[in-house]
Design a protein around this nucleic acid. Structure first.
Lengths: 154, 154
DNA sequence: CAAAATTAAATTGGGCACAATGTAAATTAC
DNA sequence: GTAATTTACATTGTGCCCAATTTAATTTTG
């Protein structure tokens, strides 16, 4: 029972670095988003809706899911909470009743104004060069593309 | 209501790249860990226990928590499931009853043998240079240190 | 057109993650 | 040496994440 195996050392698992950093970043968002009464996944959903616009181009549940890589099991209850909070409407599409359209309300759009401060405030007091983050983001996105483009072997 | 604000564009949020990649990596682990009947956080806990060893040096709940940055609200039920599965024992320390020691069972140690295949199999069929991942891991760890070393301003 | 297949969401259930609170044991301060 | 504090876990409750199943609407096929 060789206990010390560098292959299994926690510090050698890149996945753990990713997991830990992701939670640390989320934790840093938390107090800022609390001022908007949003959780972090709710914030991401609102970003998608704000981006998408209104009317006929309004996002469907599946659009948000495709963008965020989340399924209806996650999104349906989350969206219901956002609706209860008055930030959006969930409306069945008339000519295809399978589809649910997501329409930000006036309050939902107003929240966007407050949200604009979030990204800058997040970096506040963090001594990290923006350039470094840009490079990291590129690398993360590139790896995501690799993972999404190749099925697990086996 | 300026809808298009690059500051709020999903693709400009490094946090989202991190969030999405983390889930994609976890998803890639899932089928491999399913063969060990472990979830991903359970796997991380077992990595810590295997690293820690047995006896007097056995890990306490708080040791695992410090290593993985998880609190007892997360760990207690997770550890109970691992105990029910026969992978470890949770034992109150005799000379300080506040402390719970975590002792891998024989089955827990045997699982380590099977786990050794996991890291290599994860990379299987993934066309990414190891060097690139090492560099990324360094960067992730460095940023985690920055985040953990500075309180949110405000 | 009617049956079969597909699609879009919703539901159910298990397992994290975390805040807040509770509880018991140990430590410290007087 | 007792009271106050601290420490280590456990518990409770909310919300996410995902697999599996269900339901209803639409599309495709024969």
């Amino acid at each position: 029972m060789a206990q010390k195996d560098p292959v299994l050392a926690l510090d050698n698992q890149i996945c753990f670095a990713l997991y830990a950093l992701n939670r640390a970043v989320t934790a840093r968002y938390r107090p800022l988003l609390a001022e908007l009464e949003l959780t972090y996944p709710q914030y991401l959903v609102m970003l998608v809706l704000w981006e998408q616009g209104a009317g006929a181009e309004s996002a469907r549940v599946s659009d948000v899911g495709a963008r965020l890589r989340l399924d209806s099991g996650t999104l349906t209850p989350l969206l219901k909470r956002l609706e209860e909070r008055g930030l959006l409407l969930r409306q069945r599409q008339a000519d295809d009743e399978r589809v649910v359209r997501l329409l930000p309300t006036e309050a939902g759009w107003q929240l966007q104004e407050k949200a604009r401060q979030v990204p800058a405030r997040l970096m506040c007091g963090l001594d990290v060069e923006p350039q470094r983050l840009m490079a990291l983001q590129q690398e993360l996105r590139s790896l995501l593309a690799v993972l999404e483009g190749s099925a697990p072997s086996d």
